[in-house]
């Protein structure tokens, strides 16, 4: 159960990633509780949750691979197949849809030449539909990799994607909500 990580599975993590997992393990009274955050570290490392990742996490945490698989398939944020360099999630739940979620999705599909759930031929973008991302008042919005971009129009989305394709990573603050001072 506590076999050194390097020898247990084909997945190789950097010493820094290994340290992060050790640190995560220290937070909980059980090893298993580290499952979800450990899977996040692995996904960050190789881009998706491969069978190797599942085998690695199972051995590192003393779980059966079927148990790890069960966790992976339950949650939507683990990619169970390789994805593009960037993942674009368009929120399509009610509040966003009332303010243009579908228009944003259609615009992204046209720009990328692929449908939601697919990856562009050049492997740059994976487009996905998201359920409520807790940004309802700042709709329409998308999540690109680990950032929210809110209060969008097709034009603003294009500008963001242009910059991201050039290697920039616009901050979340650029489009983010600002506190309401109406009542103070």
């Amino acid at each position: 159960m506590t076999t050194p990580a390097q020898s247990i599975a084909p997945l190789t993590l950097t010493p820094d990633q290994e340290r992060r997992i050790d640190e995560i393990l220290g937070r909980y009274p059980t090893r298993r509780a580290a499952c979800i955050p450990t899977l996040h570290v692995c996904q960050e490392a190789i881009g998706w949750v491969s069978p190797d990742v599942i085998a690695y996490v199972a051995q590192r945490l003393g779980m059966a691979t079927s148990e790890v698989q069960g966790v992976v398939t339950f949650y939507t944020m683990y990619h169970q197949a390789p994805v593009g360099k960037h993942v674009l999630w368009v929120c399509r739940t009610l509040s966003c849809d009332l303010r243009g979620g579908k228009t944003i999705q259609e615009h992204a599909e046209k720009r990328l030449g692929c449908h939601a759930g697919e990856t562009t031929k050049d492997g740059t973008w994976t487009l996905k539909k998201a359920e409520c991302l807790a940004a309802c008042g700042y709709a329409p919005m998308v999540q690109i990799d680990d950032r929210f971009y809110e209060n969008l129009t097709p034009e603003k989305l294009d500008a963001l994607m242009d910059r991201i394709e050039k290697g920039e990573m616009p901050t979340q603050e650029e489009t983010a909500w600002v506190p309401n001072t109406a009542s103070s």
Binding site: G100, Y149, N151, T153, E155, K156, D162, R163, A176
Partner: peptide, 18 residues
């Protein structure tokens, strides 16, 4: 939304605040 896109095109590539 689409109108805004048309109006803003050729203007700037900067993304405005909220």
């Amino acid at each position: 939304l689409v109108g805004a896109a048309r109006a803003q095109s050729h203007a700037s590539h900067a993304v405005g605040g909220a």
